[in-house]
């Protein structure tokens, strides 16, 4: 009984169960299936089906996971073995780590900090380093190019993304995610500063290489980019990492722009968490949907979007926030 009680302690429950590991894993299973189903529907077909027909093949991802689990993991002779095997673990870990700082209700969080937004944003920045390292350690030309592309992209999306997030922090006069979410009881951030919302959404998909920015692992150009040499369950880990990163960023995005757990029907931490999860899920699903609409940009175009469009937009959104504050928008709590 004590163990069960311990499980529901926020500092265990949030990282391990919800919105942490278990929820991320479930989301991973569903979103990969859903991505294939959404793409299939737009593409006039059915997508995975026969693996479990009554539910439309929803356990397809489990079959794929099992296959990966029992597949031979190959470590190339030329690769730097330690780096090759450790980077996926670090990548996944760092993609998932920011979740600990995400509150799921005004009263339920692993820890509360005055600067939790900064912590989340800083932690998400770390994962790409390991993608670059992965590209180097495989000792494959395509991996190398993929790693370099990731490196270029990181520089061009991180700063505007940070600025967009900061513009919201300016608006709410707080860097605490709980306060930011609580400040949106009335108007959501997406209405107050739509420019920052659009910009952040764009950059979020860019940072997790969703279409149209699926550039580091551009299939038809550089095979799988940094992941080319990975096989078996290690590849499964790598593949999961980008979805998990998108999931974590979506949680943050929901808190920043979509009101977090507002509107809150019942004042219960789990209901609040479910509300947040649904919003994040929809954002991840939107990312999956974009695959069906867009081809991918070229690297130079993506970089120029980062610097020439996203960067000015983020500066403008900061200015908008400042103007709103000076205009004295009364929605701000503090």
């Amino acid at each position: 009984m004590d163990i069960l009680k311990l499980l529901f302690e926020p500092y265990i429950f949030i990282p391990l169960v919800f919105p942490g590991l278990v929820a991320a894993f479930l989301l991973l299973l569903i979103i990969i299936w859903l991505e294939r189903k959404i793409a299939a529907k737009v593409q006039l077909r059915y997508g995975p089906l026969y693996v479990f027909k009554p539910l439309g093949g929803v356990i397809q991802t489990i079959a794929d996971l099992l296959r990966y689990l029992f597949q031979e993991p190959i470590v190339p002779r030329e690769a730097d073995k330690l780096a090759f095997l450790m980077t996926p673990v670090f990548l996944f870990g760092l993609a998932y780590l920011p979740v600990v700082a995400v509150p799921i209700s005004p009263t339920y969080y692993a820890f509360r900090s005055d600067v939790s937004l900064l912590i989340v944003m800083a932690l998400t920045t770390l994962a790409p380093i390991f993608t670059v390292l992965m590209g180097w350690s495989s000792n494959n030309k395509f991996s190398l190019i993929g790693g370099v592309r990731e490196g270029y992209l990181v520089i061009s999306y991180e700063i505007p993304m940070f600025l967009s997030a900061i513009s919201m922090a300016i608006l709410y006069k707080s860097l605490d995610l709980v306060e930011i979410a609580e400040a949106q009881k009335g108007l959501w951030g997406v209405i107050l500063n739509p420019l920052a919302a659009i910009n952040m959404l764009l950059l979020m998909y860019m940072s997790t290489s969703k279409f149209p920015f699926e550039i580091p692992e551009a299939e038809s150009e550089i095979v799988a980019g940094p992941y080319t040499e990975y096989s078996g369950i290690i590849y499964g880990l790598v593949m999961g990492a980008s979805y998990v990163k998108l999931y974590v960023l979506s949680l943050v995005y929901s808190i920043l722009f979509l009101g977090g757990w507002n509107p809150l029907p019942i004042n219960d931490p789990m209901v609040a968490g479910a509300m947040l999860f649904v919003k994040a899920f929809l954002l991840v699903a939107l990312g999956a949907f974009l695959r069906a609409v867009y081809p991918r940009f070229r690297i130079d175009q993506a970089i120029s979007i980062g610097w020439k469009i996203a960067f000015p937009l983020s500066l403008i959104s900061v200015v908008i926030s400042l103007l709103l504050i000076m205009g004295g928008v009364s929605l701000v709590v503090k």
């Binding site: 294939r36 299939a40 593409q43 006039l44 077909r45 059915y46 997508g47 995975p48 089906l49 026969y50 693996v51 093949g57 397809q60 079959a63 794929d64 296959r67 597949q71 190959i74 692992e217 299939e219 095979v223 799988a224 992941y227 080319t228 040499e229 990975y230 096989s231 590849y235």
Partner: peptide, 22 residues
């Protein structure tokens, strides 16, 4: 693999690299 026959229904997905395929 195209819409009319859609082999993906059978869990058959032409995939990227050699290492990830079976």
């Amino acid at each position: 693999a195209a819409p009319k026959y859609d082999a993906e229904r059978l869990g058959f997905l032409p995939f990227i690299g050699i290492r990830q395929c079976n």
